[in-house]
Amino acid sequence: MSASITVRIVRLPHGHDLDLPAYGTAGAAGVDMQAAVEAPLTIKAGERALIPTGLSIALPAGYELQIRPRSGLALKYGIMVPNSPGTIDEDYRGEIRIILINAGAEDFVIHRGMRIAQAVLAPVVKIAWQECESLDTTERGHNGFGSTGH
């Protein structure tokens, strides 16, 4: 069983009738985020749109909220989060809005209350840079993109 972290949430006026984000199953890692559009919104094939959720949050220190695509929308329709995972920082207090891109061949219509993305709460570890003159050597070394033959 996972521990729970309390996150304060404000339902904005245009999200008044929508459910709070919820887990689809007991073992789900992410909560489903809903579209708070006032009227159906069409994302044409190849285009992007910024979708409101009608929610603002206050994350506890040391956490981020990662916005990820829903696998079913990606597979069936090509609807993805282009900057996946999108990050909601602990100090952001504005409305959570989700960038969606239609990589499919057909226009896609977003309806009010549609589950458009999932959000995962994740701990943040800060980087402490240590500048040095050289790095240890590895078998891979400087070889990058595709260098392992896959």
Rank of each mutant, 00 (worst) to 15 (best):
Met1Thr: 07
Met1Ala: 12
Met1Pro: 05
Ala3Pro: 05
Ser4Ala: 14
Ile5Phe: 12
Ile5Lys: 14
Thr6Gln: 15
Val7Gln: 05
Arg11Tyr: 06
Leu12Glu: 08
His14Ser: 10
Gly15Tyr: 01
His16Met: 05
His16Gly: 09
Asp17Leu: 10
Leu18Asn: 05
Leu18His: 02
Leu18Lys: 00
Pro21Gly: 10
Ala22Ile: 03
Ala22Arg: 13
Tyr23Gly: 01
Tyr23Arg: 12
Ala26Ile: 04
Gly30Met: 03
Asp32Ile: 04
Met33Trp: 01
Ala35Met: 09
Ala36Lys: 04
Ala36His: 02
Val37Gln: 05
Glu38Gln: 11
Pro40Thr: 06
Leu41Thr: 10
Lys44Gly: 11
Gly46Phe: 03
Leu50Trp: 03
Leu55Asp: 03
Leu55Ser: 09
Ile57Val: 15
Ala58His: 10
Leu59Cys: 11
Pro60Gly: 09
Ala61Asp: 11
Glu64Asn: 09
Leu65Glu: 04
Arg68Lys: 12
Pro69Gly: 06
Ser71Arg: 07
Leu75Ile: 13
Lys76Ala: 12
Val81Tyr: 01
Pro82Thr: 03
Pro82Arg: 08
Ser84Asn: 13
Ser84Ile: 09
Pro85Trp: 04
Thr87Asn: 05
Ile88Ser: 00
Asp91Phe: 07
Asp91Ala: 10
Asp91Lys: 01
Tyr92Cys: 00
Gly94Glu: 07
Leu100Trp: 00
Ala103Tyr: 10
Gly104Gln: 05
Ala105Cys: 05
Ala105Thr: 14
Ala105Asp: 15
Ala105Trp: 03
Ala105Lys: 15
Arg112Phe: 08
Arg112Gly: 10
Arg115Lys: 14
Ile116Arg: 02
Ile116His: 00
Ile116Asp: 00
Ala117Cys: 11
Leu121Ile: 01
Ala122Pro: 04
Ala122Thr: 14
Pro123Ser: 09
Ala128Val: 14
Trp129Met: 08
Trp129Gln: 13
Trp129Arg: 15
Gln130Asp: 14
Glu131Leu: 13
Glu131Tyr: 13
Glu131Cys: 11
Glu131Asn: 12
Cys132Leu: 12
Ser134His: 11
Leu135Ala: 12
Asp136Lys: 08
Thr137Tyr: 04
Thr138Ile: 01
Arg140Asn: 12
His142Gly: 00
Asn143Arg: 15
Ser147Ala: 14
